[in-house]
Design a protein around this nucleic acid. Sequence first.
DNA 1: CGTTGCGTTGACTTTTGTCAAGGGAGGTGG
DNA 2: CCACCTCCCTTGACAAAAGTCAACGCAACG
Lengths: 251, 251
Amino acid sequence: MPERHDATPRLAIAARPCLTVTTADGARRDLLTPRERELLAPIATLMRVERGAVLYRQGAEASAIYDVADGVLKSMTLHPDGKNPILGFFFPQDIVGLAECGRYVNTVQAVTAAVLYRLPRPALDRLLLRDSELDHQFLIKACDELRAAQYHAVMLGLAGAEVRLTRFLALMRQMQPAASNQIELPMSHGDIADYLGLTPETISRAFTRLRRARILTCPYPHLVRVLDEDRFLAAGEDGLHHGHPAKVAAD
Amino acid sequence: MPERHDATPRLAIAARPCLTVTTADGARRDLLTPRERELLAPIATLMRVERGAVLYRQGAEASAIYDVADGVLKSMTLHPDGKNPILGFFFPQDIVGLAECGRYVNTVQAVTAAVLYRLPRPALDRLLLRDSELDHQFLIKACDELRAAQYHAVMLGLAGAEVRLTRFLALMRQMQPAASNQIELPMSHGDIADYLGLTPETISRAFTRLRRARILTCPYPHLVRVLDEDRFLAAGEDGLHHGHPAKVAAD
DNA sequence: CGTTGCGTTGACTTTTGTCAAGGGAGGTGG
DNA sequence: CCACCTCCCTTGACAAAAGTCAACGCAACG
């Protein structure tokens, strides 16, 4: 029987709150110095949420922000008509809890079981106002999130389901600890659809086309293996080129 | 001859750098205290750019950030294939100059003639690290931009050209100094299309449908007048309902 | 007075959404 | 241990929406 792929097999959980940003080359860089981590530790409480649990709902009073230690969460805006667009996924070392006028602006739900540091707002605000260096790190992290949101918006504007999906897969690969041709997808295809502004059916068809083009394989719904790196990256630019592969003998 | 609508008829330019955010109810709130404005003033230089001028290009060294005093600018990512998605528009009291690793992440161009305060990075960084209160205001502004970017992403995920266009118009109305049923659009329909992930033709057709539904009129391409506020807001939720208005007597 | 940029409209193509049906993996309870 | 159930993924047929290509009108500008 094949290995499972929907559990959270991570091992190392940082003993202190952490903050990282993605640099231009796709690597991840730590923001906090050991001193700053020690500053945050006393006001942080470690908590665990199970898969599918709602961390908070949009409109609720924003009493704390969270630092993800392990697991994956998603942020979404609730829509009455059943459409719940996903604004982003949160990975370890990300900050969760964007608020406006004391209320959370969207709903956050755990995609996998997750462990977080809870940082109560009043204590955190006091800390940030006292320590301008630490405050500046949070500003940098916010700018990082802003860039991520802009990249998301660019993706949504792109035509072509293959283009969006391929870029999404490339993004997910960046979030993995080690570069590899295997991409683990913690979320369902439905979640991917909500994130890319498409339907699950369109995601499924895009996967099928990418599989038939021999660009990747999907051993399991939550695992993708890239077969042809060059055409994988090319598909993220222009999409699939509709050549006539049927004319190639024995294809 | 009718009045012109593509010039910049604004009058009051703040004598000091300003920063505002949009609150939950759509109003705009000042972030900086007079003391903080005085702190910024000595490092700021006032500059003027003409309509169509490029403030900076993506990839260029990020030597400064800018505080818009008057006029409108747009931020876009350059794409080789002619598609230049617009990530956002900047209005007075907005901050321009998002960078990553010392390089601007997108290109900013003036939509109208504009006046800006130029804040050199080294001097600003020094100021922010010395004054944690001021730094915190910039963090709040960054969170505001983040919310705006998320709202943009939600719009792009929404189906229906009328829905997106109507929400965009509502957004533009918020940016105007006084609430009114007139909405001035500083940007071209092509810019709107790039912002909403649609083509100019689709924008044009959406305008036509909204006009035919008697929801609004467009006296000039850069001016919209809302005729039916209720249905205007409704169109931003569900889009146009394809009833058969011809069947309703004298409606 | 021509040129140019922008907006509009129409005909047609392509893509995606929608509806419906079916299948496989995992989990639960007998 | 097996039956059953549920959730999610897949596929097909069709409808709806948006993109593309092309032509035209209009106003501003030189």
